[in-house]
């Protein structure tokens, strides 16, 4: 244990002392007002259909339960590949997101489809394990074939002011990812204020995150429109400063098609056209897909269909 700490400290010393970037303060009232104002955009007809189809392709279809089995994951993968049996123009989803032990099953089901396999790692969801174990978790998930890694930051370190440690762990996780894309989960519901969310976003991007992500889905509140807006604004400033486009993934609590469209509006009016792609925006969701499909079918047939007309998985 003390060896691990010593080696982390030594690595930090090699990089020089960590200086937190000068992060912009966030005004809670006005950022919430802006998010609420964008929720009033009226999204109808062709816009709605295009938005919902895009949302399907942006979805990280997720199952993260202790009772997950190969059977469950295979079933989820089938849904991911062909969300609506009779309409091949819908989907496939962006990725399937599972625990490391389920990665081989997902890889097997999705091979050649273009659907990514994402794995949570780094002692998800708390992240409160020794760094060596967290890094090993990442390497093994990548070894199983995951091409996207969803890591969690050490919120304890963030809240106790040990920003260097938060930064350093992300840098090392990124190294451990190799070619896999890294999504950094801030767990915004535990950070307490938009200022800390903004600071954590800046640290994650500086440390090499490909995506920043709101939540594990295990903590309430999970993703909200204002917290997503704060992170999108951080991404915008990072783009202004570096020209690098970082992706965004709100996760948890997004259950309805209407919510999904609201998030797309936030992206469109904050970061513009370039981010309206699964390469740069994802939804982390387990129950959103069928509501989106139901709305798509409603637009196509002009009538709502019962829930049992849509496969659960």
């Amino acid at each position: 244990m003390s060896n691990l700490v010593a080696s982390a400290t030594a690595r930090a010393a090699e990089r020089g002392p960590y200086i937190p970037p000068r992060t912009s303060p966030v005004d809670q009232i006005f950022v919430e007002e802006r998010a609420a104002a964008l929720a009033k955009r009226s999204i109808k007809k062709a816009t709605k259909v295009a938005g919902l189809k895009l949302a399907v392709r942006m979805m990280d279809l997720t199952t993260l339960e202790g009772k997950d089995t190969p059977g469950k994951v295979r079933s989820l993968c089938a849904k991911a590949l062909r969300p609506l049996e009779h309409d091949p123009s819908v989907g496939p989803v962006g990725a399937v997101c599972v625990y490391p032990n389920m990665v081989p099953v997902a890889v097997d089901c999705l091979r050649g489809s273009g659907v990514h396999v994402a794995s949570v790692a780094t002692a998800f969801p708390s992240g409160l394990s020794p760094l060596a174990i967290k890094l090993d978790d990442v390497r093994r998930a990548v070894g199983f074939g995951a091409d996207e890694i969803d890591m969690v930051i050490d919120r304890g370190a963030m809240l106790s002011g040990d920003y260097a440690r938060v930064y350093d762990e992300i840098v090392q996780t990124k190294e451990a990812c190799g070619h896999a894309h890294l999504k950094v989960i801030l767990e915004t519901g535990e950070l307490g204020s938009y200022d800390v969310v903004r600071h954590a976003s800046d640290i994650a991007m500086a440390a090499g995150a490909d995506f920043i992500k709101t939540s594990t889905g295990k903590v309430t509140p999970a993703a909200t429109p204002p917290v997503t807006l704060v992170m999108l604004e951080a991404i915008r400033d990072h783009y202004y400063a570096t020209g690098k486009r970082i992706g965004m993934k709100p996760a948890g609590g997004i259950r309805t098609a209407k919510q999904a469209l609201h998030y797309l509006v936030l992206v469109k009016e904050t970061l513009g056209d370039a981010w309206l792609t699964p390469e740069l925006f994802r939804f982390g969701a387990s129950t959103l897909l069928n509501d989106v499909l139901m709305q798509l079918e409603k637009e196509r047939t002009q009538a709502y269909q019962g829930a049992d007309y849509f496969s659960k998985e």
């Binding site: 955009r41 020209g243 513009g272 056209d273």
Partner: peptide
């Protein structure tokens, strides 16, 4: 620095 593009990738009806 780079510029954002607000075009018609997803237009509102």
């Amino acid at each position: 620095g780079p510029a954002l593009e607000f075009g018609d990738a997803w237009t509102y009806a």
